[in-house]
């Protein structure tokens, strides 16, 4: 069996695919490789976009929260200063009791 196989069967020529068949397969291979490359690129782009969005939201959260804290305290501080000024003004003018903040407020409104 082996001798017949080696001498006769193994030497049987193989049929070659026609050029058109080869061309179609090669075209399909190249098209699929392009698609595969595009899929990979899209996946990378998607991942990069997702990462950027997460990074942005983290930065925004931290930065935004910081701003809010500063703004809030600054406004409160400013309001406090104004109130103290008003009270001081009212007090110096001996118009109202310095402890009466509402009265001082009314005085300022009267000035306006």
């Amino acid at each position: 069996m082996d001798r017949f196989h080696d001498n006769v069967l193994a030497r049987l020529p193989k049929a070659e695919p026609p050029p058109g068949v080869d061309a179609n397969v090669i075209a399909a291979i190249r098209a699929e490789a392009r698609r595969s490359g595009m899929r990979k690129f899209s996946m990378r782009a998607l991942m990069a976009a997702a990462f950027a969005a997460i990074l942005l939201s983290v930065v925004n959260f931290r930065f935004g929260a910081g701003l809010n804290e500063v703004d809030t305290s600054a406004i409160a501080e400013e309001e406090g200063d104004i109130m103290l000024d008003i009270i001081g003004l009212a007090s110096s003018a001996d118009l109202y009791d310095v402890s009466d903040v509402d009265a001082a407020d009314g005085y300022v409104l009267g000035l306006l």
């Binding site: 090669i26 291979i29 190249r30 699929e32 490789a33 392009r34 595969s36 490359g37 990979k40």
Partner: peptide, 8 residues
């Protein structure tokens, strides 16, 4: 990985 020559 996108290399057509490998499948060729």
């Amino acid at each position: 990985a996108g290399d057509p020559s490998a499948m060729e």
